[in-house]
C-alpha cells in the first residue's frame, strides 16, 4: 500500500501500524514525536494500535528547542 510520509509517497506492507512506521522511518526520539495522520493527531499511547491504510498521509512533528538562552531557570 502507498502512504505519504512527510510529503513523500512510499510503499509499505499492508496492515502496518503507526508504531511500525516510526521504526521503519528511523524517527529520532520516537517516544516524543507527534504524529498527524490525515490531519488528526494520534496519541502516543495509540501508536501501536493505529493501523495505516492505503492513501494515508502521515506527518512527523518533532520537538525543536534552541534559539536563545538565559530566559528560564
Amino acid at each position: 500500500m502507498k502512504i505519504t510520509v512527510a510529503g513523500d509517497v512510499k510503499e509499505y506492507a499492508d496492515g502496518i501500524t503507526v508504531a511500525d512506521l516510526i521504526v521503519s522511518e528511523d524517527v529520532e526520539t520516537p517516544a516524543y514525536v507527534t504524529v498527524a495522520l490525515n490531519d488528526e493527531f494520534v496519541l502516543t499511547e495509540n501508536h501501536a494500535t493505529t493501523k495505516l491504510a492505503d492513501g494515508d498521509n502521515v506527518e512527523f512533528l518533532y520537538f525543536m528547542g534552541g534559539g536563545g538562552c538565559g530566559v528560564y531557570k
Binding site: 526520539t29 516524543y32 507527534t34 493527531f41 512533528l61 520537538f63 528547542g65 534552541g66 534559539g67 538562552c69
Partner: peptide, 19 residues
C-alpha cells in the same frame, strides 16, 4: 500544546546547546 502536549522529560530531546 495542541501539537506537543507536554514537555519532554529533561534531557530526553537535545537542545541546540547540546546538539
Amino acid at each position: 500544546r495542541c501539537v506537543f502536549r507536554d514537555p519532554p522529560p529533561p534531557d530526553a530531546v537535545p537542545t541546540c546547546s547540546q546538539a
